[in-house]
Amino acid sequence: MADTPKIKLTNVHKAFGANQVLRGVNLEVGAGESVVVIGGSGTGKSVMLKCILGLLEPDAGSIQIDGQEVVGMSAGDREALMHKFGMLFQGAALFDSLSVIDNVAFGLLRAGKVPRDEAYRIADQKLRQVGLGPDVGKLWPSELSGGMKKRVGLARAIATEPEIIFFDEPTTGLDPIMGDVINDLIVECTRDLGASALSITHDMASARKIAHRIAMLYKGEIIWAGPVAEVDRSGNDYVEQFIHGRAEGPIQMELKA
């Protein structure tokens, strides 16, 4: 084994009661690679990410990080493993009770590997990297626009220089221009860190921009995966329908009563 994948999911299952969300997901993310998982709303993209992060426990299957099995890991080991991860949440999930700069410095302060003033210096620099001036650091999350929140969330995710970064619908809820700015920042930040990235989205423009490889999740399984250049000639009807956003096709929207 020359290079173990950073993330490897094998046959991951997860159900909530009778609702079978993941039915055998297989996915690999290599070192320095950016994989984007696409799929409709409610197909279980966020559930998949939460299983990898350990926020949800899969019912069956294996998840390996750097070749290490993480399903059923002890809480202490899990906390140590989290240092490898950075995550940008869908709604940014900034802590309301902390100022912007404290949000960005949070991971550094908690890890305790650098002194306080150094942590704040790094946080300042990360804010600059996502295009926010030092005056923004003193603001509170409630004073920020949606785009600024995403930027701060990104700065917080990269502050501890993680090896693997997760992005949950990074452009959802933003206007197309701000969405593209965030895409550029994601590409730039992951490249600078040399990190692996796993993103989920239903925004094809965003997927094309940040992905090396695209995988499509449908009915709890990865039904297609391939390099981003091949997504337009996948030969897969489901992928075709999704990337062109057609109402007609094999994918039928399940409208629950």
Binding site: L53, L55, A75, F85
Partner: peptide, 18 residues
Amino acid sequence: GTMRVTEQIDALTALSTN
């Protein structure tokens, strides 16, 4: 509760904080 529904509690875990 607000922290739960806005994923701030998940964010704490993701930042190695119980």
